[in-house]
Design a protein around this nucleic acid. Structure first.
Length: 194
DNA sequence: TGCCAGGCCCTCTTTAGGGCCTT
């Protein structure tokens, strides 16, 4: 049994898959029953596939999800609130996401750096846990997508690509797996490598 | 068709190519 009290599960929805340029649209995090969520109005257009996958659109300077208007905050405010959320835990936390090293970590690091928040972020976050290699090391499956694994292990379908639901389901998956501390350590990466 | 992300992993590999995973 690993000590997962310090693991915060998070997820980003963004304007596309290019980690060098995409804008964050939704930033969510879950730890136990504590939930963080923020929507941000993007400055660049969503790719066609991002629109299709996430259901987000921008019209008239407003953000919509599945056609429903959504309240947004400036990116700097969202990140400051996120840091406040992380600061509320005792000691540095680990941030867990599915394919964190391929997508979420480089994007989050880039925007933190751009807004000169990276030193504080790195003070609050000791590392990233990537649940994709974690799952590959633990199980032999035909698919390691989060949606497939939620179906396989939890027998559930859910509102995938809503970042709150994705982070919540990831936490549930992790708790179901109950991985050893050694297994989690093997799937943990420093915040300094992005 | 002009472009469309990219790095890891696997294998019918290594002088390569295709699928996966995230939006």
């Amino acid at each position: 049994m690993s000590d997962n009290r310090s693991i915060v599960f998070f997820d980003l929805e963004a304007t596309g898959l290019d980690t060098d340029v995409c804008d964050i649209i939704q930033l969510s995090a879950v730890c136990g029953k504590r939930v963080f969520n923020a929507y941000i109005l993007p400055t660049r257009e969503l790719t066609a596939s991002a629109k299709q996958v996430t259901g987000f659109t921008v019209s008239g300077g407003k953000l919509f999800r599945d056609g429903v208007p959504t309240s947004t905050v400036p990116l700097a405010d969202a990140l400051a609130s996120f840091l406040d959320f992380l600061r509320s835990f005792a000691g540095p936390v680990r941030l867990a996401a599915h394919s964190a090293t391929r997508f979420d970590a480089p994007v989050l690091t880039r925007v933190m750096r751009r807004l000169k928040l990276l030193p504080e972020f790195q003070r609050l976050v000791s590392g990233y846990v990537d649940t994709f290699p974690l799952a590959k090391n633990l199980f032999r499956l035909s698919s390691y997508s989060q949606q497939n694994m939620v179906r396989h292990f939890l027998g559930k379908s859910y509102d995938a690509h809503n970042a709150v639901a994705d982070a919540t389901m990831l936490q549930e998956l992790f708790n179901h797996w109950n991985p050893s501390a050694q297994a989690v350590q093997r799937a943990t990466f420093s915040t300094c490598v992005f």
